[in-house]
Design a binder for these strands. Structure first.
Ligand SMILES: [Zn+2]
Ligand SMILES: [Zn+2]
Ligand SMILES: [Zn+2]
Ligand SMILES: [Zn+2]
Lengths: 148, 148
DNA sequence: TATTAAATGAGAATGATTTTCAATTAGCTC
DNA sequence: GAGCTAATTGAAAATCATTCTCATTTAATA
């Protein structure tokens, strides 16, 4: 299965999968497509709907399996909303963070890392070794601010 | 219901609840107790267990209701783990962030805010208005590093 | 085109969270 | 301290989210 036209995001995913000896299945590429063509983060259900629209009946378990795997591979980033909901956004492995609109769940990247230059001394003094971090900004996007 | 001995955390919760016209029930104070006496973040189930140990049979729904309410009141902070799990940590409304040990789920506060001095210009240029943020550091605590 | 390990689908199973409503209780007032 | 009342709880059902199982299908390679 190799489409004539393939966007950079799909090629990227295909490449990462191949490197790991994983298969570039129709379903996996559809998940990439659905995610990267959305300017908002999507819930598992929304991704499932999007994939079904492209491919017809598709198992929900496949979506779960794909998202978990993509997260490990850095192909998607999981976001957390104040209301407890979760969303997924496409990612190309780069170190980026997101700001999310709490109204429409739109996602906006920001490549600068606010934590990068942070001095961990005070926390490492407590014997803690920092390995990773999660940063997410909340707010309102321009459209939602207007609408309000 | 007013205990003879009450720690500052419990008084704090009691005060916040009173200010909002909410009742300081035995169950709610037990949730506070269980959380603030734990040096690790706790899952809903663990909190439920802790409360049952203090009070005997207690409805799980009450724990959920309490945690949701406490989150709104700033009495607890919800944490997110890489494996998808969630944990809750006691909080006194202050602006703190947490580093969490991915092995034992221990929580360590750090009062410095890495995002505070961050220049939002690049993101606000996109029409986005930043209102809040979530920062969490991951790593290994001293004990778990030794054990490993 | 044949081979084969990897992946999918369907539904059952499990687990997490929310809802419902009758019974209980905290926080007043007297 | 007893009585009042709205807020809260408990228990179980209902709903929603996630994982598992295993027979079938498919991508990748030769
Ligand atoms: Zn928006
Ligand atoms: Zn960063
Ligand atoms: Zn630890
Ligand atoms: Zn902060």
């Amino acid at each position: 299965m190799m489409k004539d036209f393939e966007c950079t995001q799909e090629s990227y995913a295909r490449e990462v999968l191949r490197e790991k000896g994983l298969k570039s299945t129709t379903q996996r590429l559809a998940v990439v497509h659905v995610l990267h063509t959305s300017r908002k983060s999507l819930s598992v259900g929304e991704i499932h709907d999007g994939v079904k629209e492209m491919l017809g009946a598709t198992g929900l378990a496949t979506i779960y399996r794909t998202l978990e795997m993509f997260e490990d591979l850095g192909i998607v980033k999981r976001l957390h909303f104040p209301d407890g909901g979760r969303g997924y956004a496409f990612s190309q492995g780069e170190h980026v963070h997101h700001m999310v609109c709490v109204d429409c769940r739109g996602v906006f990247d920001f490549p600068e890392c606010p934590v990068e230059s942070f001095d961990y001394a005070s926390v490492e003094k407590q014997g803690f070794r920092v390995k990773d971090h999660f940063v997410q900004l909340f707010g309102q996007c321009g459209k939602c601010a207007e609408a309000a």
